[in-house]
Design a protein around this nucleic acid. Sequence first.
DNA 1: AAGACCAGCCTATACCCTATAGGCAGATGC
DNA 2: GCATCTGCCTATAGGGTATAGGCTGGTCTT
Lengths: 198, 198
Amino acid sequence: MRSGLTTNTVILRAADLSDELGFNSLSISAVARRLGVAAPSLYSHVRDLPALRAGVSALALEELSDAISTRIAGRSGREALFGFAEAHRVYASRSPGRWQSLQHLTAGGMAGSAAVGRLVALTESVLHRYALRPEWQVHATRMLGSFINGFIALAGSGSFSHRSPEPESSWDIAIDAMHTLFSSWPSIDGPDPARKLH
Amino acid sequence: MRSGLTTNTVILRAADLSDELGFNSLSISAVARRLGVAAPSLYSHVRDLPALRAGVSALALEELSDAISTRIAGRSGREALFGFAEAHRVYASRSPGRWQSLQHLTAGGMAGSAAVGRLVALTESVLHRYALRPEWQVHATRMLGSFINGFIALAGSGSFSHRSPEPESSWDIAIDAMHTLFSSWPSIDGPDPARKLH
DNA sequence: AAGACCAGCCTATACCCTATAGGCAGATGC
DNA sequence: GCATCTGCCTATAGGGTATAGGCTGGTCTT
């Protein structure tokens, strides 16, 4: 037992490195250099590069869910919606490599995992106040998730740069618009306007 | 002059290969094998791997714009909006590698290019009928673009799989919702409800 | 205490990819 | 015919991935 590496340590350092270099530049050899060991030494802790990357994705998913959980605690309706969205954006901004790793999540990889289930549950809690019918809750989930992911990707690639107004306001307006939409979508109890005030 | 390779041929074949293997697996050596030449031979036609990839992105952008142009021809308002969005989705489905290459476009890379300008113009023509104030047109552009890109990415990664209702209906509902939104957003002539009927 | 075993590190290495250097051969221009 | 150019080639350096086998320190058993 020399430097005391563990699988978790390797993955955590890999995640940190991906934030610095970009997820696509993450490599076994770069992590090994960072840890001051020879590259083959890492195979005692991770099976191969894809497994290392999957480890970073799993870590990112957990961290994101924690961030969301914190941001939406004690909130509902519009406030929860904004908190939910903002948690993504802040996470992507602070941990770009980790965020990128989430784009590589596939249904086959982690579909049945507790971590994905947790994120789904958080999304449902955010939409809970809208009391949408099940199929409409799915539509809302997909629309919200698509917007968030797409906005962050496009903003990150500079597509919104150098153009007025600031992307921040577009973000707010879009989320507010979705809040309005979800508030008016078919709810569990039917079209009760009074109930739909949030 | 032997096999008659040209830069365009190399890029086109690279694009085809990226659709088969995924954009991230595109390599100089894979393209060389496909073309039946030695890898170093390709450097007569492209400067390096990043340049090859940029070539694929430029081609994809052109093809997508063509597809959009075709899909929205003779349409306006709601029809144009659906056609615009559908063109993206069909393109991403038929040419997954090419579509992925577009995720690597950055402002620094092609911001000033005619091709990006063309896509911006197409987006504007789609939104033209809504007669939005300039800053609101930007918000609409960003919301629409974010949703489209995000939806395609999430659907592609399997996030919407194995869950009712079909993603197709979520797509339709979201675009229809945005149509409704844009129809009610501040327009150039102010809040004229009669004008806002599409 | 000594020996066996194990885990985690190491070096060596095969294979693959990227990109550069220099050579060769065919086509073109004078 | 000769010189030049272009587009291909081989050779190769350097970097990354992953496997094989060796070494060493720590732990367990006798």
